[in-house]
């Protein structure tokens, strides 16, 4: 995997480590990153994006504790080979949380009834 596969927005409200973690999670759960695939080193990512390496470490550490990444001796971080349990619906749904909350808030500002928004969302999902 190349460090430039990640896109960093330093000025977004979301902390950089969470941006990285979220992107990696999506890449892994969508199988764009294969089990066993090596991730770029913390140093590489930090240097490429000119960000604090602790930020990268934190993102990697988070995914490691979620079982999505594994530390391999001599290789650094790799995508976990075996996940004992596939990620549940609830866990995958969590990844949409931020944007769902944002959507709900905007709908509130526009004074739209929930039923109408849900109907539209369902239509988009079922396409």
């Amino acid at each position: 995997m190349d460090a430039d596969l990640l896109s960093i927005q330093p000025s977004a409200a979301e902390p950089i480590y969470r941006q990285i973690a979220a992107q990696l999670r999506r890449l892994i759960t969508s199988a764009r990153l294969q089990p066993g695939e090596e991730l770029p080193s913390v140093r590489e990512v930090a240097a490429h994006h000119a960000i604090n390496p602790m930020t990268v470490s934190r993102a990697y550490g988070q995914l490691e504790s979620e079982g999505l990444l594994e530390r391999r001796r001599g290789k650094g971080m790799v995508v976990a080979e075996s996940r004992r349990r596939p990620l549940s619906d609830a866990r995958r749904l969590e990844q949409l949380d931020t944007r769902l909350a944002e959507l709900a808030r905007e709908a509130g500002e526009l004074d739209l009834p929930a039923a109408l928004v849900l109907e539209r969302l369902r239509a988009l999902l079922e396409k």
Binding site: R43, A46, A47, A50, N52, P53, M54
Partner: peptide, 11 residues
Amino acid sequence: LLREIALRAGE
């Protein structure tokens, strides 16, 4: 410059 700072802080 930021890159330099980031790397030194980290390593």
